[in-house]
Design a protein around this nucleic acid. Structure first.
Length: 697
DNA sequence: GAGTTTGAAACT
DNA sequence: CAGTTTCAAACTC
């Protein structure tokens, strides 16, 4: 069909104009939902959709992260997860610009490339209207996908509307019902994909409009959470089924930097099952960091993939991708099921910044049973005490050559955390998995493990008990603090030594020089709160020593790797450590991006820490710098009000936290202009029935 | 891989 | 809160 001129995408004069349009009326007639209710209920609806485990399982780490954006963007995301039509309705009613979506429906259906390329999205003007346009554009897509025409087959608008209306009717009847039908599953896949795409689009558009990245990230995190649930729905009980290609590939896509905007999303856009592989292939040369980021988030889950792998190149790539997909699915499943731990993105923050873990993940390395001993490996590579460094030539380790090897090794092993519990049933904090808010998985060597989804109730109950005893039990153990003060040039003070263990250590014999010491393990210096004796912590001694002993690189590495094990980190303003972290420094978490309360907050922080982002940048992001100021300013805007008292003790100016659980420990990072929104969301959440799968025992 | 050491977590 | 026990990771051989 003809491609309408872009000028057609000009701001909509008035909503009423479209309300009078035949199409609009037709939609209204189809939808059982009253227009007037949309605005009032979309929050609730979306809240429900985004009801994160952390929301359900109160913890001191309440995130004030929900800001105004939430009320707007989240709608779309969540809505998409449950009812694309509803979403469309929301779009139509909550966004002035969205009303034109219908008119543009055909246009966009026929011009997927326009959007796919990302150029259109980037090319549009940078005002809010563009965002709305983008959002509005989702309507036609939604309709299209809902109609099961992911292949690009065009269907008459009437048909689309008809089908979607039917769908919404079904979904309203049981919003959480699982889609058994493969077609629907696929549709959801597309919806997920679309949401992710939207995130990305919003990210870029927001970027240009000076919007708060954290907000976006938060939304993204939530969306990812949502997607997780969706994926979970589709995969639970059938873990081995083919992965959702669109979602997976798209997740990687959206997290990419602007420079990747031009990447072909065609495959994902069209829903081509092979698209994932193709896309993966396509990006491999440029070391797609996104999958890496995601993979890092999902590290612990990567190893659960099937072992059957083709050896031929093509097959290998596809299999690799398939593994990634499965990994994501697995992770998502875990996130979804995780006892209120939400997504676990912490691992994200712990991977090497020099390389793309995924790029190093070969099918063989992902074979079941070949569980990377991430922690050990990482530590050995970096710990000054380990043979790897001690035995080896330390200076050599700093050579580019060694460094590369080191990181490669790290990446190969930076995949998982697994426990070896024998008597705790993995239901105590002794268990790393449990402490991190993760279910134990295959690679764990635990015995009589109860930390599994099938024992969800038990896990939840135990967790609750522990939290009742110590509300911060699952909170990040390490708080990284920087003075946050950015000079005009955007420079921020950064000192790993400013990172501190929440409680402090109690070492007697290790002199805080071994990993027995939690401070050392986390790569942070000891603080006055430590009760250690003979502290020689190289990262900073209790008495005020500093990390001068080790060079910055070592510190960074050690810190990073130390945290590998200790995912319970609160990270503060680490963006400066990876100054080039463009997006997000934007980084978006372990996911509890975790994809979890864990997501929204952690997701952001994990990403912020994500070395992969740096890598991406290093790979050529030229405009990344443009993100920085905004991000930094954001960081500085974090209010402390909600910081747990315990944490406050250790915090100075700015604090952001990521919990292993990706639980947002505190840090309402924004002046709550967002508070209003947030508050309203809370109210809504209360009014919404608990998410079935998160029922507490 | 077995045994030891260590310090956090749990318990009293 | 302090002392003790339990536990699993870290470490050594």
């Amino acid at each position: 069909m003809d491609s309408p001129d872009k000028t057609q995408i000009t701001p909509t004069p008035s909503l009423s104009k479209f309300e009078d349009s035949p199409v609009f009326k037709y939609i209204n007639s189809l939808s059982p939902i009253e227009l007037a209710k949309f605005r009032q209920t979309d929050n609730a609806f979306n809240s429900l959709a985004f009801l994160s485990p952390s929301s359900l399982f109160p913890s001191p780490q309440i995130s004030c992260h929900r800001e105004s954006r939430f009320s707007v963007k989240r709608h779309h995301f969540s809505a998409a997860s449950n009812s694309s039509v509803l979403q469309s309705s929301n779009d139509l009613n909550s966004n002035e610009g969205a009303s034109k979506a219908i008119e543009q429906s055909d246009f966009y259906d026929e011009q997927p490339g326009c959007l796919n390329s990302g150029s259109s999205f980037k090319g549009v003007s940078s005002d809010r209207l563009d965002e709305q346009s983008d959002l509005a554009i989702e309507l036609p897509r939604t309709l299209k996908y809902d109609c099961g025409s992911p292949d690009g087959n065009l269907e008459p608008c009437d048909e689309i509307l008809k089908n979607t209306s039917e769908k919404v009717t079904r979904q309203e009847g049981s919003p959480f019902q699982h889609n058994k039908d493969e077609g629907e599953e696929r549709q959801q896949s597309f919806e997920n994909e679309r949401d992710l795409r939207k995130i990305r689009r919003i990210m870029w558009s927001e970027e240009s409009t000076g919007c708060d990245w954290v907000a976006i990230v938060s939304d993204v995190a939530d969306l990812l959470t949502m997607n997780s649930s969706i994926i979970n729905e589709n995969t639970e009980g059938q873990d081995r089924r083919a992965a959702d290609p669109g979602t997976t590939s798209f997740i990687s896509t959206i997290l990419q930097f602007p420079l990747d905007n031009s990447n072909n999303l065609e495959s994902t856009e069209t829903g081509d099952p092979n698209g994932s592989c193709k896309q993966s292939e396509f990006r491999e040369p440029v070391t797609d960091q996104t999958p890496a980021i995601l993979s890092t988030c999902l590290l612990d889950k990567l190893v659960v993939s099937d072992s059957g792998l083709n050896k031929d190149d093509e097959g290998e790539k596809c299999n690799l991708y398939s593994h990634q997909q499965r990994s994501i699915r697995r992770r998502c499943l875990v996130f979804e099921k995780s006892p209120g731990f939400g997504l676990h993105l912490n691992s994200l923050a712990n991977t090497s910044k020099d390389q793309n873990p995924l790029s190093k993940l070969t099918p063989s390395s992902m074979k079941r049973g070949e569980v990377p001993q991430c922690n050990k490996a990482v530590v050995k590579e970096n710990s000054p005490e380990t043979p790897a460094t001690v035995g080896g030539n330390e200076t050599d380790l700093n050579s580019p050559e060694k460094k590369r090897t080191k990181f490669e090794h790290v990446e190969e092993n930076a995949a998982c955390k697994r426990c070896n519990c024998k008597r705790s049933k993995c239901l105590k904090l002794y268990c790393d998995c449990f402490a991190a808010g993760l279910y134990c998985i295959e690679p764990c060597s635990c015995q009589d493990c109860f930390n599994k989804p099938i024992h969800e109730n038990k896990v939840l109950e135990t967790r609750r008990q522990i939290e009742s005893r110590n509300p911060l039990a699952f909170a990040p153990k390490v708080i990284r603090i920087t003075d946050s003060v950015s000079d005009s040039g955007g420079e921020t003070n950064k000192t790993p030594a400013s990172a501190r263990h929440k409680r402090g250590c109690n070492c007697k014999k290790s002199s805080c020089l071994k990993k027995y010491c939690e401070c050392f393990q986390a790569g942070v210096g000891c603080s006055p709160s430590c009760r250690c004796e003979g502290c020689k912590n190289r990262f900073g001694q209790k008495g005020g020593g500093d990390e001068s002993e080790s060079d910055g690189e070592d510190l960074e590495t050690c810190e990073r790797n130390a945290s590998e094990k200790n995912s319970h980190d609160i990270v503060i303003n680490r963006s400066e450590e990876y100054p080039d972290l463009s997006v997000p420094s934007s980084d978006l978490s372990r996911l509890p991006f975790a994809f979890s309360g864990k997501l929204s907050g952690s997701f952001l922080h994990s990403i912020r820490l994500s070395p992969q982002l740096c890598t991406t940048q290093e790979l050529g992001s030229s405009d990344s710098s443009s993100f920085r100021p905004k991000f930094e300013s954001h960081l500085q805007a974090i209010p402390e009000d909600k910081t747990p008292e315990t944490l406050k003790h250790n915090l100075s100016p700015v604090l952001e936290a990521t919990s292993p659980n990706c639980k947002r420990v505190s840090l309402p990072h924004r002046e709550c202009s967002s508070s209003n929104t947030w508050r309203s969301r809370k109210l809504i959440l209360r009014s919404v029935p608990p998410f079935p799968s998160f029922c507490q025992p």
